[in-house]
Every structure is written in C-alpha cells, then in structure tokens.
Amino acid sequence: MGLAAQKRVRTIISYCILGFWSFILLFPMYWVVITSFKNAIDMSIKATYMPFIDFQPGLHAWRYLFVDRLTWFLDPFMNSVLVAFISSTVALVIGSSAGYALARFDYGGRNNSIVLGFMSQRMFPGALFILAFLVMFRELGLLDTRLALIIVYSSGAIPFIVWVMRDFFEGLPVEIEESAMIDGANRLGVLFRIAMPLAAPGLVAVFVLSLIGAWNEYLVALTLTFREAITIPLFMTMQVSQTGYTEWWNMSAISLVSVIPVVAAGMALEKYITGGLTFGALKG
C-alpha cells in the first residue's frame, strides 16, 4: 500500500471516528427536541423515535411553557439572566484589571505566586463553601437574594479571569502603552482605551465562560436561594420531584430554553471559547 493510499485510509477512519462521536453527542439532543413535541401517550407505552412516523408531534409542552405558565417561568429565567450577566461583568472588570496589573507591574518578584494563589481556589471543593456561605449569607440577611449569587459567582470567576488575562496582556506589546503614558494618559486610560481593546478576544472568551458557568451553576444556588431568587437549573429540578411522575415533555421544553442561549453563544464564539478553555493549560 502506498503512502497516499495509507493516508486515504487514515482520513476515512478519522471521519468515521468523528462521525461516531458526533452522533453520540447528537442523539441526546435530538431526543430532547423530539420529546418536547411528544404527548403523554407517546411515552407511556413504548419509545418513539421519529416525529410524524411513529408519533404525531404536538405543541402542548411549548404552549404550557410560554402561554399557560409563562409568568411562573419568567422569574427564574430573569434571575438567571441578571445573575449571570452582572456577576460576569463584575468579575471581568475586577479580574482583568488584576490580570493586567500582574502582567505589567512587578510585585516583588512574586507575580507567579500570586497567580498560583488565585488558581489554588480551584482545588477547594465546592462543598467546603456551601456550608460556610449558608451561615455567612444568613448573617448578612442575603439568603434568597440575587446579590448573594452575584457575589459568589463573581468571586468564583475571578481567578480564572486573572489567570487567562494575565497571559493575554503579557502577549501584548508594552511599548504602545508606554508611549501613550509619555503623552500624558493615565494608567486607567491606558487600561481601558488601549490594553482592553487589544485584549478583546481574550475578554470575550473569559466573559462568555464566566457567563456560562454562572448560568449553569447548581449547588450554590440550591443552598443559597429558596423561592424569590431561584435560577433556571434549580427551577428545573423542582419540577421533576413533584409527584413521582415526570412530565418529560414539559421538562424537555424547559431544558431546551435553558440550553439554547448558552450553546448558541458558545458555539458562535467557538474560536475564543476554545482559546479560553485551553489557554492556561497550554502554558503548563
């Protein structure tokens, strides 16, 4: 077998592997989409796979969600939106300033240790925090408020942002900033007018990743919110345990509504996100 033929075989095998894994990832998503169009009867006797062929799709789950129970669904949805956006913004501002500072200033030669210190947060198990947070936010009277979640999620995202953004800023040439300063700009102006725009790809990546993290978080939300401030993941699980019956179709519709925005955002910004995810590790 010649080299070219060998290469062809390798390519074919590669596509087979990729196709297979894509299918594994696709099937559950397909299933949740069709389930959201099923009626109770389509799920009580046997599994059904193809709309119009082995079951007649209906819109009742979507009507349930967007017409019958819209108000009831809207509160947790808005909570999720507000908490995710505000916490990510706060974390972005604070975290990227610190990342910038660690890239540009010398802290007695301990810059790397400081960054490592930030990252050590990742080692701490979430379980260690929830107990303390429950008591801490009780004393502050902040249980069941969005503010509590915003505080926790911001602090959770900051270390990652510091880590990635520091590397990012280090990759930008320092000379532009210095000449701007010689021209009389102050440091804050340099950060926001020069460094930040140049670092936009990195900022987008870490912002979206923080956003997704906050949007999907469950354990802390479960511990700190009760009714007023519950977020989408919490809302979802509360629907399941109602009577022991699961309304699969309604749950599927809710899942899709919670998944589509972040998946769409993530996939649209794929280049940045992959960068953000793999960035730190690549530096070893």
Binding site: N216, P233, M251, V263, G266, L277
Partner: peptide
C-alpha cells in the same frame, strides 16, 4: 460541535 456539551448545565445533561 464538540464544544456543545461543555456549554450545557450538568443538571440538564443529567436530565437529558
């Protein structure tokens, strides 16, 4: 496409 599962909440993944 492979990025997709990472964007989905574990709660939803476990459910679906």
């Amino acid at each position: 496409w492979f990025l997709m599962p990472l964007m989905v909440s574990p709660v939803v993944v476990s459910f679906i």
